[in-house]
């Protein structure tokens, strides 16, 4: 069946699907997590509530991309799924506890009179989820010890200087995109200093990621060659240049105190550049530098079955998510919680 699809192409297709889901998760839920972290700071409950309500209708759907990415990774690359998750036990559990707290306190906040407590827990959950994701990315890039197709390291292997820098970078970038999203949704600076904070969080993200980029070659020679060998080096130069240009554009808009969606879009552009850079850095490894996409892939039969079963559905999932975002893009200024709608 479908002989024109060779095994490597099938594996690449599924790598693409997993990668796309992860990318969509970061692009969509990154802002939600950032707003959650931000909601820890305002003193006024109304400000915190505003931050939570801007994401009300969509954050459930945004989080599904993580579940989809996990499910696809499990289905298409089961061995890598087991190795990565068992090696990153503590980061993954940290993220899960964060997501659990966040999801439940979001609804409890709506129904409770003790808003302060639940908005705090929501923010704390978002922070924890962001920390877990940062630690996980750091742990993956720091290298995982594999012997005979099994994880052969220890529980704290993930914790390296590189991981610390990447965690700071991930958290700050979420806050950064969260601010931009808030300006897009509310059409104004909700509290004085938002523009300054966009610059600060953006700058910290940049410094942390730059530091991480310099540390990467100390973990594996693979990353060194990516900057020195053709063609990956040219790709990386181009991506870096594009990222720089987008950042300058963003800084310009910040100084003009822009209130439209352009700020958020530029943030997403910078995110996409960063992810493309990472892709160029690790390809074709799923667990750099030990296991490639092709070594980790499921049997041909499975990849084909998933392709036939899920392939046609993927565009439908994308379509109704797009519809969801479209329905709720016109609701500037009337941010209600679920419970308010239901008369609590």
């Amino acid at each position: 069946m479908m002989n024109f699809l060779s095994d490597p192409i099938l594996a690449l297709l599924w790598f693409g699907a997993v990668g796309l889901s992860v990318a969509l998760y970061i692009l969509l839920d990154g802002a939600d997590l950032g707003l959650g972290i931000l909601s820890l700071f305002p003193r006024k409950e109304s400000e915190r509530a505003l931050m939570m309500h801007t994401m009300g209708p969509i954050w459930d759907a945004n989080e599904t991309w993580l579940v989809i990415a996990g499910g696809m990774l499990f289905g298409a690359f089961p061995t890598a799924y087991g190795i990565i998750l068992s090696a990153l036990y503590i980061p993954v559990m940290t993220m899960l506890f964060g997501l659990i707290l966040r999801a439940a306190s979001f609804e409890f906040h709506a129904f409770s009179v003790k808003k302060r407590f639940w908005s705090f827990l929501f923010g704390f959950g978002s922070l924890l989820a962001g920390v877990g994701q940062g630690l996980a990315v750091g742990g993956l890039l720091s290298g995982i010890t594999i012997v005979n197709g099994e994880f052969a390291g220890s529980a704290f292997d993930f914790f390296t200087p590189l991981t610390v820098l990447l965690t700071i970078g991930v958290l700050m970038s979420y806050v950064f995109v969260g601010y931009a999203y808030l300006i897009k949704k509310t059409g104004a600076e909700t509290s004085p200093g938002t523009y300054l904070r966009i610059l600060i969080t953006g700058a910290v993200t940049g410094v942390a990621l730059l530091g991480a980029t310099l540390l990467l070659p100390t973990r594996s020679y693979l990353f060194f060659t990516r900057w020195t060998e053709y063609p990956s080096n040219y790709l990386l130069y181009c991506i870096t240049a594009l990222m720089g240009a987008l950042s300058l554009w963003l800084i310009l808009l910040v100084f003009k105190r822009h209130t439209g969606p352009a700020l958020h879009n530029l943030c997403l552009g910078i995110f996409i550049c960063a992810m493309l850079g990472m892709l160029v850095g690790v390809f074709p490894y799923l667990i750099p530098p030990s296991m490639t996409i092709f070594e980790a892939a499921s049997s041909r039969q499975t990849l084909l079955f998933m392709l036939v079963g899920l392939g046609p559905l993927f565009p439908i999932v994308l379509a109704y998510n797009f519809y969801l975002h479209k329905v709720f893009s016109r609701d500037e200024g009337e941010h209600k919680s679920r419970a308010q709608i239901y008369g609590e």
């Binding site: 599904t64 579940v67 989809i68 996990g70 499910g71 696809m72 990774l73 499990f74 289905g75 298409a76 089961p78 061995t79 799924y81 087991g82 190795i83 998750l85 068992s86 197709g149 099994e150 994880f151 499921s298 049997s299 039969q301 499975t302 079955f305 998933m306 079963g309 899920l310 559905l313 993927f314 999932v317």
Partner: peptide, 21 residues
Amino acid sequence: AKFSSAAGDFFGNILGFESTV
């Protein structure tokens, strides 16, 4: 992890269907 690796060909695939569909 070893269950995932050994049985993932079917089991992981089905969970993928569950989450996506």
